[in-house]
Amino acid sequence: MAASSSSSKLLPVVAILAMAASWQQAIAYDPSPLQDFCVADMKSPVRVNGFPCKDPMAVTPDDFFNAAKLDTPRNTKNKFGSIVTNVNVSQFPGLNTLGISLARIDYAPLGVNTPHIHPRATELLTVLEGTLYLGFVTSNPNRLFSKVVKKGDVFVFPKAMIHFQMNLDHEKPAAALSSLSSQNPGVITIASAVFGSKPPISDDVLAKAFQVEKNLIDWLQSQFWENTNY
């Protein structure tokens, strides 16, 4: 009887905790800026977590415009067969504090946007042209979520997950437009970060990590790791 009485007393507490958790989820939202806008002052010597604000009285309509020409394909003649055109706060100061940026990805036939992460952003990708094989890998245990997507399809890559895309067409190029939940999402390309870092990671470490001979690691580190994210 005492045990039953204790259990009945716990029920309201459990219910309140459940309601609190649900309420917290319901009111969750992205951080809001403290003013209407904060156009980045790229000439300021001040360095903060982000960029200082331009004098609001000096702001013009052009601060909220960027002629990125994202409707124009770019040259994909590189070893990966892809090129990324970024529109983040560095190219578009009006994005400062607004928590959003864009990127266009162009793919040559069989081109690959190689495995990489955006440490500060979730990415929502819309296929503009072509057919892509894409996916992301979760943290441990490393589960792959992949799919073949076509023109008009949308796929989301959760924040900081390793992800990739490949154009499946042998003859035609492809293109996609990505929205990212950060004014400066950052990018870490896995292969170039591991094998092309300056100074290089010890080949002893990498040989052990990848379970291969050191001469293979040395060869990989000797390659030119091209940056295709501009």
Rank of each mutant, 00 (worst) to 15 (best):
S6N: 11
N140Y: 12
F65M: 15
D63M: 15
C38M: 03
P173F: 01
F64D: 04
K147L: 11
W23P: 00
K69M: 05
A103G: 04
Y107I: 04
V137E: 07
L10H: 14
A20H: 11
A174F: 01
L132Q: 07
A15Y: 08
E226M: 03
E129M: 08
W23A: 15
P199V: 06
Q25H: 15
V156F: 02
H116N: 12
I16E: 14
H116P: 04
S7N: 12
L124C: 13
L132I: 01
D169I: 10
N66F: 13
D203F: 08
T114I: 13
V187I: 15
S222W: 03
F164W: 08
F145M: 11
D106K: 11
Q91N: 01
L216N: 05
N215F: 12
L110T: 05
K43D: 12
G135Y: 10
Q35S: 15
S32E: 14
K172G: 05
R104M: 10
V205A: 12
D36K: 14
S101A: 10
M42N: 03
K9F: 11
D41E: 05
E171F: 12
G186K: 00
L128S: 05
P200W: 01
N167Y: 00
N142G: 11
N227W: 07
F37Y: 14
K54F: 06
T189K: 15
S6F: 13
S179N: 04
S44I: 01
C38F: 10
S5Q: 08
F224V: 09
N78G: 07
L128C: 09
V46K: 11
A40P: 06
P109N: 01
Q25Y: 14
S139V: 10
A68H: 09
S179F: 13
G81W: 06
T126Q: 10
K147T: 08
D204E: 14
L124Q: 09
